[in-house]
Write a protein that binds this DNA or RNA. Structure first.
Lengths: 248, 248
DNA sequence: ACCGCTGTTTGATCTGTGTCAATGCGTCAG
DNA sequence: CTGACGCATTGACACAGATCAAACAGCGGT
């Protein structure tokens, strides 16, 4: 066992059984579509929860893969590192989203997952998830959908990196965040960025200065209001226009 | 049923039962790691094969998702289209690789798959694959690995698009092709590109002129020899240096 | 309240890649 | 054999975004 056991909070039997059933992320997370009985079975498979403090790693590239993680609360980034030191943020994840699926293919994680604010995750031992998937058709199918969604998301990012210009990328990024916050019951127009300009830039394939300038430009045009990490989207449609209206 | 039935070749019982068991791609494709008996079960699930002529679509974005496809022979590209007409190649696939997993998440395909040369695929109805996965643990796990590998591959492309310069991207591209041809028993150093400069450029987030110039430059430096689509890698290590030695 | 650190903004300049344009090569049809 | 078409190469120039640099804001610690 190389896994450090610190930060793992074993649950009492009661809270364990209640984990998924009582979670308000049911509709976003793995239990989606399961019957009450099936959620109970999943509850038993979910071993424990773990708290990750801001700037701490949930896992690192190269570490042994054993579990995937469902984010219960908080905010993460994942990044990959090249031998020469260059690294790139591959995604930002929020409550209800699943982390760690990159590790399935090679029995080791291929990227780092870092908490951008104090967070909590549910640990889902992967072998148990597979066992349960063989018994619960709905869970099996839903898990496949989750993995597939990750592939589709990645294609979107590839599109963004491959064909879009700096301000289009940032507009796409803001709209995507807005949409995901909305799905979680937060304001679609006003939110707090958990990541730095540098991390946004890394994700979007831009330098931090370019990100900063694009923010300022959006603000001048009345599309958004920025104050450091506090964002208000003033003109949702205007941002969308920036994306598609590129042709004429 | 919206699926056009043309181009589907129903197999005789004998060839059907023999499909995976006799296929020389077993070790690269879905049957990897299965026992003889399990491969027989998979054979029964694989419904039919289909021939796709050069430039024809295997599926299109928006089409109903029913099956994934294992490439038996040939070469494909997948691409996504934005509303404004911009499109991007998201990958090139060769024998033994699986196509169509993007469709699982939303019950419809999210990209186009086009044959770049006359090709043959095995049609794997997805619901049957899920049924079989519930019975064969090895198959289930291997399928999860295949999906995960796709996610990891996508991260690699994101890295490439986000942090690498034109010539690094092309070097990475050539080395990746070389490695995949090698795994299939072809020459690691000499191969025929199935795609145009424009398609390479689209995949790498570059314009075709930039791709062409990078090829010429590699040739001047004695790293490769190019004649249209015929490539010979003369200095494998030199190409690798281009990738990592970026730092100093 | 002040210091020091980290992250952000803004400006000036540089450069890699895109854009536009012309030419060249190969293949297929007639 | 010849013309036409698709694809590739090469050159000249433009520009988006990178790089370098300086100043500034916010925040935690003492």
């Amino acid at each position: 066992m190389h896994k450090p056991e610190k930060h793992i909070i074993p649950l009492t039997l009661t809270s364990l059984k209640a984990a998924c059933s009582l979670c308000n992320l049911r509709e976003l997370c793995l239990p989606f579509g399961l019957s009450e009985h099936e959620v109970d079975l999943l509850d038993n498979a979910v071993g424990a929860q773990r708290r990750i403090k801001r700037q701490q790693h949930l896992y690192r590239a190269g570490e042994n893969f054993e579990s995937i993680y469902a984010i219960r609360s908080g905010f993460f980034k994942t990044d990959v590192l090249l031998e020469d030191g260059r690294n790139q943020v591959t995604g930002f994840q929020m409550a209800g989203e699943i982390l760690g699926m990159d590790g399935i293919s090679g029995e080791a994680h291929t990227c780092n997952a870092v908490a951008l604010e104090d967070s909590e995750v549910c640990i889902i031992p992967f072998s148990q998830l597979e066992t349960l998937s063989r018994e619960i058709k709905t869970l099996q199918h839903h898990f496949h959908k989750v993995m597939s969604r990750e592939i589709v998301r990645d294609h979107g990012v590839m599109m963004l990196l491959g064909t879009m210009r700096a301000e289009e990328r940032l507009a796409a990024f803001l709209l995507n965040l807005s949409q995901r916050f909305t799905a979680r019951g937060y304001s679609p127009a006003e939110f707090h960025l958990r990541m730095t300009r540098d991390e946004i830039g890394s994700y979007l394939g831009l330098k931090l200065e370019t990100v900063s300038r694009a923010f300022s430009h959006f603000q001048e045009d009345g599309l958004i209001s920025v104050q450091q990490k506090h964002i208000v989207i003033l003109d949702h449609a205007g941002l969308k226009d920036l994306l598609n209206h590129q042709l004429g």
